Amino acid sequence: MATDPKSRDRAKTQTAIVAAARDVLARDGFQGFGINAVARAAGCDKQLIYRYFGGLEGLVDALGADFATWLEDSLGPATPAATYGELSERLILGFMEALRGNVLVQRIAAWEIADPSPLVARLTVARGGAMMAWMAKTRGDLVPPAGVDAPALNLFLIAGVQQLVLSSAAVGSFSGVPLKSDADWDRVRAAAVRIIRAVYGA
């Protein structure tokens, strides 16, 4: 069955608008982010943004869905883990590499603290939802060892990874420890794995 040309055009325009929204957000932050700026960057009439996304909040939700797809892809296939320790390692190390490689998501993470606006909150919810969905698929029927508060431990490690990545981007170190070279990050990965295996077992 042939695809409706109008549907193809709409999908193409929506993709272009979301890409333009990413570009504007990366360049200007939320202070310069708006319907007019995105429409100019996308080379389209701003009415199309209202028609396809319902306005600025809908556009941000589309961005959130785009970031959620990126995160799930970055964490790798959501195939069931053999042990809870393997699950935690895949989550923490995957998130570390994903965040290190995406400057815009780093900025959004910083805005969560420095400028916790409703629009930023929408992106935060989308990212958290994507991580939880990946975890649910990968965890399967696994349960953490008795007495281990796995959600709290993962929260602690994710927060630590996020802080280290942001500090690396801002000043190249954290608390006097360098975070610039591959060797520096090898140390961080090794420390994370050691913590996880100490709690869950190898």
Rank of each mutant, 00 (worst) to 15 (best):
residue 156 F to P: 00
residue 96 M to Y: 00
residue 122 R to Y: 01
residue 183 A to P: 01
residue 168 S to F: 01
residue 142 L to Y: 08
residue 85 G to D: 08
residue 157 L to G: 03
residue 84 Y to A: 05
residue 72 E to W: 00
residue 106 Q to R: 13
residue 167 S to Q: 11
residue 171 V to S: 13
residue 122 R to K: 11
residue 110 A to K: 07
residue 155 L to N: 09
residue 159 A to V: 06
residue 164 L to S: 12
residue 91 L to G: 02
residue 88 S to D: 07
residue 101 G to T: 09
residue 116 P to E: 06
residue 82 A to E: 15
residue 178 P to K: 08
residue 124 T to N: 12
residue 91 L to M: 15
residue 157 L to Y: 01
residue 179 L to H: 10
residue 135 M to F: 14
residue 97 E to L: 07
residue 171 V to D: 10
residue 176 G to K: 10
residue 168 S to L: 02
residue 146 A to F: 02
residue 131 M to W: 03
residue 95 F to V: 02
residue 183 A to C: 02
residue 99 L to A: 06
residue 104 L to E: 06
residue 173 S to T: 06
residue 167 S to L: 04
residue 107 R to M: 14
residue 96 M to C: 07
residue 97 E to V: 08
residue 70 W to E: 08
residue 66 D to I: 01
residue 159 A to E: 11
residue 77 P to M: 01
residue 102 N to K: 10
residue 128 G to P: 09
residue 75 L to T: 07
residue 136 A to K: 14
residue 85 G to A: 09
residue 130 A to L: 06
residue 130 A to W: 02
residue 76 G to P: 01
residue 101 G to V: 10
residue 76 G to T: 03
residue 181 S to F: 04
residue 118 P to D: 11
residue 131 M to R: 13
residue 102 N to H: 15
residue 178 P to T: 12
residue 185 W to S: 05
residue 142 L to K: 07
residue 73 D to F: 02
residue 178 P to R: 13
residue 177 V to M: 09
residue 146 A to Q: 12
residue 106 Q to C: 13
residue 182 D to S: 11
residue 121 A to H: 13
residue 125 V to A: 14
residue 177 V to D: 02
residue 148 V to I: 15
residue 97 E to T: 13
residue 66 D to E: 08
residue 132 M to S: 09
residue 165 V to E: 09
residue 92 I to S: 00
residue 141 D to I: 05
